[in-house]
C-alpha cells in the first residue's frame, strides 16, 4: 500500500512540476501573432497546394494580412473567398478575373508521328533525351505529365492531347511548370477563343507535320476588327483583353487552329464520335 502511495505521489509530483515548466515556457516564449491571420487562414482551403506561390496556406494568410496586396490570389478558394479575406483586413475588394489553364495544342491524331518511343513514359523524359516520336517540335507529347501534376484532376488526355477541364481548374499553375514544352498558359475563364498552336514555323513546315496547326496565313489578323491578334512571324496569339469573342477569326481560320473552348465532356464526346466514324469506315 505504501508503495502505491509513494509511486502515486512521485508521478503526481513530476506531472505537477512539468506542468509548471510548460506554463512558464508558454508564457515566456509566446509569439505574438495577428489574430487576423487565423481568420484569413480559415477562409482558405487548407490544402497547402502551393498554387499561390507561398509555402502553404498559413504563409499565404500571413502575406495577405501583412502586405494587404490585392493582387494576391488563392487559385483554389477563388475570388469570393479572396474578397471576404480582404474585407477582413479592411480593404474593399470586389475580385479580379478568374483564370484557367489552357493547353495550346490540339495535335494528337491530327499530327504526324514517326518512330515509336519506348522508355520512361513521361514528357520530360522524352523531351530531355530528344526521344520524341511527335514530329512537331512544339506540340503536346501526350504522356500526361501535366495530368499527373494536377492536384485537382482537372486535366485529361483526350486523343493524345492534354485537355483542361475549365470548371475544375483552379489556375494553380502546377501543370504550367510540369509541361516541358511550355504549352500551357493561364487565360481568363470567360475568354473562350484561343489559338491552339504554338508552332512558329512557316506554313509549309507546319503542314508537313500537323493538319490543325497555325500556318501563319494572317487571315485572322485581317478578320479581327479589334486588333486582338498578336502576330509574330507565322504564329498568331489572341490577346484576351482585347478579344470580344466575335468569332470572326474562328470562322476564317483555314486550318481550324483557332478554337472556342468547349466543356471537356463535349470534347470527349466529339473525339469518341470521330473514333467511331473512322472505325465504321
Amino acid at each position: 500500500m505504501n508503495l502505491v502511495i509513494i509511486t502515486g505521489a512521485c508521478m503526481g509530483g513530476i506531472a505537477f512540476l512539468s506542468g509548471i515548466v510548460l506554463l512558464i515556457a508558454s508564457k515566456k516564449f509566446a509569439v505574438q501573432e495577428n489574430p487576423l491571420i487565423d481568420d484569413v487562414e480559415a477562409l482558405l482551403p487548407g490544402a497547402n497546394c502551393g498554387g499561390c506561390g507561398y509555402a502553404g496556406c498559413r504563409s499565404f494568410a500571413e502575406a495577405v494580412v501583412n502586405t494587404k496586396n490585392t493582387d494576391l490570389l488563392c487559385p483554389v478558394a477563388g475570388q469570393k473567398a479572396m474578397a471576404s479575406a480582404f474585407r477582413l483586413v479592411g480593404l474593399d475588394f470586389s475580385g479580379s478575373v478568374r483564370k484557367v489553364a489552357r493547353v495550346m495544342c490540339q495535335g494528337g491524331s491530327n499530327s504526324v508521328r514517326s518512330g515509336q518511343y519506348q522508355g520512361i513514359a513521361s514528357c520530360s523524359a522524352a523531351q530531355i533525351a530528344n526521344l520524341i516520336d511527335l514530329v512537331c517540335p512544339y506540340g503536346c507529347l501526350g504522356y500526361g505529365e501535366c495530368m499527373a501534376a494536377c492536384p485537382f484532376d482537372a486535366i485529361r488526355m483526350i486523343d493524345g492531347v492534354a485537355v483542361v477541364d475549365a470548371d475544375a481548374c483552379t489556375a494553380c499553375g502546377k501543370c504550367i511548370k510540369a509541361c516541358p514544352r511550355n504549352l500551357i498558359s493561364l487565360v481568363p475563364y470567360d475568354k473562350k477563343v484561343f489559338v491552339a498552336c504554338k508552332s512558329p514555323e512557316s506554313g509549309a513546315a507546319v503542314k508537313k507535320y500537323c493538319s490543325v496547326g497555325c500556318i501563319g496565313c494572317k487571315l485572322c489578323v485581317k478578320a479581327c476588327q479589334f486588333e486582338a491578334i498578336d502576330y509574330q512571324p507565322f504564329l498568331s496569339t489572341i490577346i484576351p483583353e482585347k478579344c470580344t469573342q466575335c468569332m470572326a477569326c474562328v470562322e476564317k481560320c483555314p486550318t481550324r487552329s483557332i478554337l472556342i473552348n468547349k466543356p471537356i465532356s463535349e470534347i470527349e464526346a466529339s473525339k469518341e464520335n470521330k473514333v467511331h466514324e473512322t472505325a465504321n469506315v
Binding site: G119, I120, S124, A125, I128, A129
Partner: peptide
C-alpha cells in the same frame, strides 16, 4: 532500369 535516362532527367 533506364538509369542513364533517369540521370539525364536528374541533371535537368
Amino acid at each position: 532500369r533506364q538509369l542513364v535516362h533517369w540521370i539525364r532527367i536528374g541533371k535537368t
